[in-house]
């Protein structure tokens, strides 16, 4: 699968841009948190698209962002 680029995103309507980012993020999140993957992806999609592209290129940053999202999600659900 070719990497998602800013120009590929820019060619799509806003709603579809999030969809494209979600499709890339979801499998990565699924590998870490299978039971929460859909919710975590939904949370991360609130982040700016430009930052999401950076996260997709940086597994370490993505990792810490996912952990951050899990903490927020768990706090929210209590």
């Amino acid at each position: 699968q070719e990497p998602l680029t800013a120009s590929m995103l820019a060619a799509a309507p806003p709603q579809e841009q999030k969809q494209m980012l979600g499709e890339r993020l979801y499998p990565l999140i699924l590998a870490m948190h299978p039971s929460l993957a859909g919710k975590i992806t939904g949370m991360l999609l609130e982040i700016d698209n430009s930052e999401l592209l950076l996260l997709l290129e940086s597994p370490e940053s993505l990792h810490s962002k996912i952990e951050e999202a899990v903490a927020v999600l768990q706090a929210h659900q209590i």
Binding site: P13, P14, Q15, Q17, K18, Q19, G22, E23, L25, Y26, P27, A37, G38, K39, T41, G42, M43, L45, E46, D48, N49, L73, H76
Partner: peptide, 22 residues
Amino acid sequence: SSSVNWPPEFRPGEPWKGYPNI
């Protein structure tokens, strides 16, 4: 409570129904 529905859940292969952008 509406807060229970946050965050919207992403499902692969389905159109995203959350916020298009902030």
